[in-house]
Write a protein that binds this DNA or RNA. Structure first.
Length: 304
DNA sequence: AAGACGAAAGTGGTTGA
DNA sequence: TCAACAACTTTCGTCTT
């Protein structure tokens, strides 16, 4: 893990390492400085709501998805922890600054109320979407940071929240489109508005968000279409070829993924109709056809 | 009859003068 | 601010299976 001692955003030196999640983050603003070891969590195997419920994790000792960060019962004003043990002075100083920070949030200031609304929304959406705990954690950390920067003022909480979630998903290579996210958001946040907010956040926070890779969408669509793993592998090989031949850039990743799956399924004799595939991927048959034609024309299929 | 195909026209967003 | 532009959609007529 790289050694960084200062937060690149707010300059705080209070960085915390979380080996469980493979992240280093700033305790003051929540910026994740190093998240090379990505926790895929249940993400790639939970395709349905029921499945994700079943596999969802429970419990957490220190969660950013709670308004009070779970600390309210752990610290008293006499410098002891929950077991009554005295804390070292170093620990005490740390706790003091945390409690100060945390008091600012608990007491009826507008940010706390904002946060509590946002977090309960996040919880709901996260369970509908089947997102892992660690995605929620990162989303709420980023949301806190946005809140502290005053970027929420005058805007719809839900729009900011969904845009934040979208950023986190993109950063982690979790395939969720803006459309899907706005579908589970309340009516207060249209896809258009979320997109606008997303662009605003990206530039305000100087984030570079990677482009979605079509291959990320393959497992989910394949599951919807009940296609075997062999086909998924084949579709991914097709996409890899396509990427090298630069016939993917600028095209919508979902359409490309759908066409690759359609092609792979056809080749393996597990044929699905264009209509079925287009419904699974929320694109039209025409788009499937166009991408399909491009793939067929440009890729040496015998080798795949 | 259902599926696949492709042309044509329309939509919403991006880009660059 | 406006026009050109690319990707995608909708619609529809025509082949293919």
């Amino acid at each position: 893990m790289t050694e960084k001692s200062k937060c690149s955003d707010c300059g705080s030196k209070r960085l915390k390492e979380d080996y469980g999640r493979g992240e280093v983050y700033c305790e003051d603003c929540g910026l994740v400085l190093d998240d090379k070891i990505i926790d895929e969590g249940m993400e790639w195997r939970a395709f349905t709501h029921e499945e994700s419920q079943e596999k969802a994790r429970t419990g957490s000792s220190h969660s950013y998805t709670r308004v009070d960060k779970n600390l309210s019962t752990e610290i008293d004003q006499f410098g002891r922890d929950s077991r009554g043990k005295k804390l070292s002075s170093e620990k005490k100083a740390k706790m003091n600054s945390i409690t100060r920070w945390h008091k600012r949030l608990i007491y009826s200031d507008s940010k706390a109320r904002n946060l509590s609304v946002a977090l309960s929304q996040l919880k709901r959406m996260s369970s509908v979407l089947g997102l892992s705990q660690s995605v929620m954690e990162e989303t709420s950390r980023l949301y806190r940071r946005i809140l502290e920067k005053g970027l929420v003022k005058g805007r719809v909480i839900e729009e900011i929240l969904v845009a934040t979630l979208y950023i986190v998903c993109r950063k982690r290579g979790i395939p969720r489109t803006l459309e899907e996210l706005s579908d589970v958001a309340g009516s207060g946040a249209s896809e258009k508005a979320i997109g606008r907010t997303y662009r605003m956040l990206k530039s305000e926070l100087n984030l570079d968000v990677p482009l979605p890779d079509p291959a990320e969408f393959v497992p989910r669509y394949a599951a919807k279409l009940e296609l075997s793993g062999t086909i998924q592998q084949k579709a991914k090989r097709i996409l890899k070829e396509a990427k090298e031949k630069r016939i993917v850039s600028g095209k919508g990743p979902t359409g490309v993924a759908a066409a690759a799956l359609y092609l792979a399924a056809k080749m393996e004799g597990e044929k699905r109709t264009q209509k079925e595939v287009s419904e699974a991927a929320s694109v039209t048959e025409v788009t499937i056809r166009n991408r399909y034609r491009e793939l067929k024309e440009n890729i040496a299929l015998e080798k795949i």
